[in-house]
């Protein structure tokens, strides 16, 4: 996935989360499930945020 594709995928994830949680916190990362999904999307460990792929 190119950098631009990754950027668009993350922005779509945030947009979809905000649509589903109109009264949710300002920071979507306050939702542990969102944080996990966003990290997986970026190729990161969902718990620690460490990079998984070489």
């Amino acid at each position: 996935m190119s950098t631009d594709e990754q950027r668009r995928a993350l922005s779509r994830l945030v947009f979809q989360w905000r649509t589903a949680h109109p009264d949710g916190p300002d920071d979507p990362g306050d939702d542990p499930e969102f944080l996990r999904q966003a990290r997986i999307l970026q190729g990161l460990d969902p718990e620690t945020g460490a990079r998984l792929t070489p």
Binding site: P25, D27, G29, D30, L35, A38, Q42, E47, T48, G49
Partner: peptide
């Protein structure tokens, strides 16, 4: 590193801004 990755570095699930 993306700005998002840096902003979430070291964050444990359940932590709140």
């Amino acid at each position: 590193p993306s700005a998002y990755r840096i902003s979430q570095a070291g964050r444990r699930p359940g932590m709140k801004y």
